[in-house]
Amino acid sequence: MTRLGVIGKPSDWLISSDVDYKKAKEIFGIELIDIDISELIDGINSNTCASFPNKFQNLFDKAEIDKAYLIFKELIKIKDNYMLDGLTVRCFDLLDTVHSTSCLAFSILNSNGITATCEGDIPSMISMDLIRKVINKESFQANPSRIYTDKNEIVFAHCTLPLSMSESYKFDTHFESGIGIGIKGEMFLKDVIIFRISPTLDKFVLLRGHIKENLHEKRLCRTQIVVDIDKEHSVEYFLKRPLGNHHLIVYTDNNDANVLRDYLINVGLTEIK
């Protein structure tokens, strides 16, 4: 049985991301454990002494790096206390209470084999956990941010790219709030899978594509990529029948898509094309 923590409820804007906990257990063997967000906030605020490893110290304002480390440390503590395999956090609640963001913490957790998604997004967390369990890969939780219907291309962006998935990276503020630390990563121009399951846990989408370009725009979340979607799929999925907002991006160079698809069909899910 996999244990995934839901720290705080899903963010208010995730109006289509509520999940039936019993179904998650029956279908995927995933136990979802609710944890009050105050446990995280109080833990961070009661701990003032922390410092990230030296390699980060010259990349950004030291005080911000140290605050990000406090969040990381507290998430590890909660993970250990509740014996979690992964977690999601209603992270925008940290903006006013801790005056920082959890993007760097998520990025490092994901780079080290611990599923971590933002905004309390449970379908994204389950999707990320499935990617890790079934094909043993890390993934990038991202917002579809722009679509070029004529070219079958889509821009994805978010501030939580796992450092292990970046060709290079630097730190910037988190996009929406302008505070804390967001990851401004450059991704490899490689083949990818775009994946997510529905909040109803009965459908999934799995598209293949290729990262064509990294972007550097001001009005998008910090890591930004253009994905050229394979001809067998259409970006119209996003405009006509999306399963929700966040999608997971996974590097692939083999049969990953088929393995993941077979697993999901085997446990009773239907593919949306």
Partner: peptide, 19 residues
């Protein structure tokens, strides 16, 4: 349009509507 996560919000709303 495609700035300020407006597309992301639209996807979540459309998924909600269709559910």
């Amino acid at each position: 349009f495609g700035n300020d996560n407006s597309l992301a919000a639209s996807l979540e709303i459309l998924a909600y509507i269709q559910r």
